[in-house]
Design a binder for these strands. Structure first.
Length: 110
DNA sequence: AGGGTGACGATCA
DNA sequence: ATGATCGCCACCC
């Protein structure tokens, strides 16, 4: 459902980026990267600029590609040639798989 | 209600 | 690095 994907896209914080595949996975549609692109097409008010292709490459073309880059740079995102430095900006907020740094001593048991 | 369609992704040569 | 290809799968008409 596109709302899940939109939700994932909106979850990307400013100054960070994600990928079509990454968003798809976060939304529970692993493998359906193209679906993310489709949602971006229709979605309004989405931070579309923060969604990139694999490796941090802008998959857009023409003026749109330039605009995306400008927008990202305006957020402080750094580029490595034609691609975004994913090591610095790849958004990996929620871990769909890896469990995490749950430092909370959960005592709630039950 | 069914099929083509992508702002994709990983792979092989 | 390039490019051709299939797979993915809900969305749109």
């Amino acid at each position: 459902m596109r709302l899940n994907i939109e939700r994932a896209i909106r979850s990307i914080p400013r100054g960070k980026v994600s990928t079509y595949g990454g968003i798809a996975k976060l939304a529970g549609y692993a493998g359906a990267a193209r679906l993310v692109a489709r949602v971006l097409r229709r979605g309004y008010g989405l931070p579309w600029q923060r969604v990139l292709g694999a490796g941090g490459e802008i998959k857009l073309t023409g003026d749109s590609a330039i605009e995306q880059r400008l927008r990202l740079e305006a957020e402080g995102v750094r580029f490595r040639g034609r691609k975004v430095d994913m090591k610095l900006h790849e958004f990996r907020g929620e871990r769909p798989k890896t469990r995490s740094p749950r430092r909370n001593p959960s005592k709630k048991r039950g």
